[in-house]
Design a protein around this nucleic acid. Sequence first.
DNA 1: CATATGATGGACT
DNA 2: GTCCATCATATGG
Length: 185
Amino acid sequence: MSTILPKSFYDRDPKIVAKDILGKILVKDDLEGIVVETEAYYGAKDPASRACKGKMNFNKLMWSEAGTIFIYMVHSYWMFNVVTGPKPSAILIRALEPNKGIENMIKNRGLSDIKKLTSGPGKLTKSLDIRKEYNGLKVFDKNSLIYVKNNSINPKISKSHRIGVKKDLEDPLRFFILNNKYVSK
DNA sequence: CATATGATGGACT
DNA sequence: GTCCATCATATGG
C-alpha cells in the first residue's frame, strides 16, 4: 500500500529531498510516473536559482511552505518544481518513467515515442498536462490533483552537475537513477 | 551515435 | 532588446 509523502518529507534541505524523491511516484489524475531525475535549487547563494535576486512576484512561491508546487516557464515549456526546506529553495523534477496512463500521455504530447514521453523537464509537464494553473497546490495533500506516492523500491542513485545551467555551484546538485533510460541527456 | 543551431514565450533591464 | 532551470531538427561519423 503506497502512502502519500507527508509535508515533513519536503521540509528538508533540497539536496536531501531531491535524492530521496527518486523512485517515488508522481500522480496527476490517472497519470503516474516514477521520478527518475531531479535537481536541487537554493536561494540567494545559488546563481542558477530563480530566487537568487530576491523575492519577486513571479518567484514568491519559493518562499511558501514546503511541498508547494512552483511552476515556471522557460523557453515556452513548463518546469515542475516543489518547494523544500530552508526558504527559498526547491527541487526541479527533470524526468519521469511512465508508469500508468501512458495512452493519455501520448495523447497529451502528440507523440508515440515512449522514450521521449517524459525524459525531460519540459516533456513531462506536457505529457502530464501540467500548466501554471497548478501553481500553489500542495503536493502532500491527498485531495490535491497532484501528489507523490511512496514506493518501496530502493534505486541506485548517481549525481552530477546540473544541466543547462549557466553558472553552476561546485556541488553536484543533479540526482538520477542509474541505468534508467528515461533520464535526460 | 554525436554535436550544433534555431524557435519558443514570459519576465526583466 | 536580452536572458533563460528546453526541445526538435539537421547534419556528420
